[in-house]
Amino acid sequence: MIRDILDAVDREWSPVADMIQWSEDEIHRAQQHHPDIADLLHHSFSLLRPTHDRMSTEFVYRGHARELIRRLAHGEDTRPATAAEIVLALGQASHTAPLNDTGVGLLFRMWHEAFPEHDDIDPHHEHRENLHGRRIDDAEAETRAKLAVPDRQLGTIDCAGWHHGERVTCHYAPATHPHSGRRS
C-alpha cells in the first residue's frame, strides 16, 4: 500500500521535477549571456509556468521558457503568447478545421522561432513568407494578443538574500532583510 502511494506520488511529481530542472537550466544559460542582470533572471522562475499539457515535452517547454527569459532580459512585455504557445494553439485548432495559408505560415514561423533545434520541418518557409508575410505578421500580432497571459508579469521581487540555499548578495535583497541574516 505505501509502495503504491509512493509510486503514484513519483508519477505525479516526476514531470514537475523535470520542468523545474529545465527552467533552472534555461535561467542559468541566460545568466551566462546576461551576467549584469543575473539576479533578475534568477527571480524569473515564476514567469515560466507551463500553460499547456504538451509543455511536459522538454523541447516545447524550453522554447517557451527561453522566449520569456529573453523578453525579461530585454525589458519586453512577458504577457503576450510565446511562439510555443501559438504552435500548441494552432495545433489544437487544426484538429477542428484545416488551417488556411496564413495559419500554416504562422504555425511554421512560430515553430521556427520556438524550436530552432527542430527547424527541419518546413522546406517551403521562405516561399511561404514571401507570399503571405504581411498577413502572417498581422496574424502573429493578433494571436499573441488573444492568447496573452494577463498575470504573467514578474512584479515586485522580495529576496531574502538566499539563492538555491546559498547566501548571496542579490540586487533585490535589502541591506537588512528580516530573513537574510545580514547586517549592513
Rank of each mutant, 00 (worst) to 15 (best):
T169Y: 05
H64T: 00
D138W: 01
A139C: 02
D53G: 15
T176N: 12
W22T: 01
A93H: 12
H34F: 15
H163G: 09
A8W: 04
R70M: 13
E166I: 11
L147D: 07
H112R: 14
L88F: 10
A65L: 09
R49I: 05
D18F: 03
A93R: 15
D25N: 11
H64D: 04
L41Q: 11
R109L: 14
G91D: 12
R152W: 05
T169M: 08
R79L: 02
A148W: 01
R128F: 00
E113M: 05
G63R: 04
M55G: 06
I37D: 06
T51M: 07
N130H: 14
R70S: 13
A65R: 07
D138K: 10
L68V: 08
D122L: 01
P116A: 09
R167S: 14
M19H: 02
H171V: 05
D36L: 09
H179A: 15
R62L: 04
A93L: 14
H34P: 04
S184R: 10
D7E: 15
P98C: 00
L90H: 01
A83W: 08
A8T: 14
R135I: 00
R54T: 00
T102H: 07
T102C: 11
H163L: 13
G165T: 02
M110H: 02
A97W: 01
S44T: 03
P116E: 08
R54E: 15
S23Y: 01
A160V: 06
D137L: 07
A173L: 00
A65H: 06
M1L: 11
R128G: 01
V16E: 12
E166Y: 11
M55P: 02
P174L: 11
S94A: 15
I27W: 01
N130W: 04
I37M: 13
L6W: 13
E113N: 09
P178Y: 04
P123F: 07
I27P: 00
L68C: 04
R66I: 01
P174G: 07
V9L: 13
L47G: 08
A148Y: 02
H179Q: 15
I136R: 01
V104Y: 11
L88C: 09
H28K: 13
A145Y: 00
L154R: 07
G165Y: 06
N100H: 12
E126N: 08
A83E: 03
R109P: 00
F108H: 13
F59N: 06
F59Q: 06
G133Y: 12
R49P: 00
V9I: 15
L41E: 08
T57R: 10
S180I: 01
A139S: 04
E113W: 00
E117M: 10
S56Y: 08
A81C: 02
